[in-house]
């Protein structure tokens, strides 16, 4: 079955959660702009990840994480030229340069970092191919997704909290009617001042966002800050009518009601 879509509609956190819960094995490809990220999973855990635009150089990765010195990297590049990462890793361990755990720890962090890049992608086509394995010759790890999901979820939670505070961007803003508020004494950021300049009951928050070139997350953050400071108020639409559900059954007796449902079941079976 296909597992594909766009991050715009299905966030990376949701996707990782799905892979984690379903303990999936396969490859997740995410394409956004000119970038393509491939993440491989085995039983719902990250085994390998790579950004197609970034070359995978094990020695440089180990140097970046301070497991190797720059001078060692130059020497090892010459000594182990043209080796695949798995072979190179073995040579490093056998040569006593590093322990296996050093290499695996570094790669766990590196692969997680590749996945974290995706958290800031708002748009990107993804597809999951199962049970595809990582390209041969690479070093596989088993990195649980739980921490990554928590981190992604935290960002999502912030966004959701802002959405709760500002449920609709189609609402307008007006300056609060508090006579004691001294606008000159309030310190506002540059974005907040830009938004303040558009506050008018005729301007929706969406229109202000367009005018100030703020994305959805940022306009919500700014409006929330202005609300907290007591500078503006959201003009909410009138609340809807109270809902009074009609009666489902004419009969009040529970057995009669069950009988009705059983008759419906028999009828539908006979269609």
């Amino acid at each position: 079955m296909a597992l594909k879509g766009n991050l715009r509609d299905f966030s990376i956190t949701q996707l990782l959660n799905l892979i984690h819960i379903a303990t999936k094995t396969g490859a997740l490809y995410v394409e956004g702009g000119s970038d393509t990220v491939a993440v491989y999973f085995r039983d719902g855990k990250i085994s390998f990840a790579q950004n197609a635009n970034q070359s995978f150089d094990l020695l440089k990765i180990l140097a970046s994480s301070k497991k190797l010195k720059r001078s060692q990297v130059v020497m090892l590049q010459e000594k182990f030229k043209d080796l695949q990462p798995a072979e190179l890793g073995l040579c490093l361990v056998n040569g006593g340069y590093l322990s296996q755990e050093d290499i695996l720890d570094t790669l766990r962090a590196y692969y997680s970092g590749v996945v974290k890049q995706l958290f800031i992608w708002e748009d990107g086509f993804f597809h999951f191919e199962g049970p595809e394995s990582a390209p041969e010759g690479n070093i596989m790890v088993r990195e649980s997704l739980e921490d990554l999901i928590v981190e992604g979820a935290r960002k999502l939670k912030e966004y959701e909290q802002l959405k709760d505070e500002i449920p609709s961007l189609e609402m307008a803003l007006k300056f609060s009617d508090r006579p004691g508020t001294n606008m000159r004494a309030i310190n506002l950021s540059q974005d907040e001042w830009r938004v303040v300049s558009y506050v008018n009951p005729k301007n929706s928050i969406t229109q202000i966002a367009h005018a100030t070139r703020l994305n959805e997350m940022d306009i919500r953050r700014v409006v929330y800050a202005l609300l907290q400071a007591g500078i503006v108020e959201i003009i909410r639409p009138a609340s809807g009518a109270v809902i009074t559900p009609g009666r489902t059954f004419v009969a009040q007796d529970r057995d009669e009601q069950k009988s009705i449902v059983n008759r419906l079941i028999d009828r539908i079976r006979a269609i």
Binding site: K4, G5, N6, R8, D9
Partner: peptide, 8 residues
Amino acid sequence: STRPETFR
């Protein structure tokens, strides 16, 4: 089932 953009 074919349009994940509608799931939300």
